[in-house]
Design a protein around this nucleic acid. Structure first.
Lengths: 139, 139
DNA sequence: CTAGGATCTAGAGTTGGCTCTAGGTCAAGC
DNA sequence: GCTTGACCTAGAGCCAACTCTAGATCCTAG
């Protein structure tokens, strides 16, 4: 039960990460990988599990709105190795702040949306209408 | 203290909504206004407070990720007048669901980000390090 | 030997949502 | 009468992040 260093093809990585093979090549081209992607016979890309792990992190950062430029910056720092941990922390903290801000903003939007849904709810079946305060813009 | 029907120029609307004049013309072109924008002397756009109110709603829906196509659909429904409230409710409910999903997703991402910030925190001043569980991918 | 499928590179195309430009009109103030 | 600034239209340009295409190579199975 030891798979010490399993090699993965680009197709396999695409499958396990959910990224397209196109996106994987694109990410590589953009310098988003920490380890330069090795090549096997015929010039084919060979990935390992830690590439997949890194991609998993990338996907999460992307999903939370980090632009590729910032992701590249982070990859650069990690690639450079020990010594720049403070900068990495700063980068992540800034992103963290943006994400919390974004969540708050969305929660506010959700308030209005809920309110408006509520208005239509009352309109469409007034029986189950609760009382609502009315302080939002029309329509 | 009665400003019964104040007319606003495109510049004034831009100022109060935060949208650019370009964006306002673009939104009009895209059919996102409920009332066709009236024109004053010289063909200039004349807005009123309820346009601003509507734009406020638009801005919130946009900020929560509603694409312009959906916003246009909603505007169409409102423009058509009474009778399609159910469809409006459906549209808003669907958007509401997407927003809550998005908030949840962001919250999950935030977990990882916090974890990683924590790792660098511990690394950079280990004195104040609390204990952490370790189950996230590397770097 | 050959057909199929996965891979390769380089670069063009797409999408959404604006933003900007060019060239012109119009009203007010000096 | 002239400049200034806000406005007009139509359409081009931009940005991010992919996605897709073309044409070539390589490996495996039949």
């Amino acid at each position: 039960m030891a798979e010490v260093t399993t090699s993965l093809s680009i197709g396999q990585v695409a499958e396990r990460t959910g990224l397209s093979v196109h996106a994987l090549r694109f990410y590589e081209h953009e310098g988003l990988f920490v380890n330069p992607v090795r090549r096997g016979p015929g010039g084919r890309r060979v990935y390992r599990q830690d590439d997949v792990d890194w991609l998993t992190v990338c996907i999460i950062l992307r999903a939370s709105g980090m632009p590729l430029t910032a992701l590249r910056r982070y990859a650069d720092l990690v690639r450079q190795g020990a010594g720049n941990e403070e900068e990495r922390r700063t980068l992540l903290r800034e992103h963290q702040a943006r994400v919390t801000t974004q969540i708050d903003r969305l929660a506010e939007c959700l308030d209005l949306i809920r309110f408006k849904v509520g208005v239509y709810e009352d309109l469409l079946d007034p029986d189950s209408a609760a009382d609502h305060q009315c302080h939002a813009p029309g329509r």
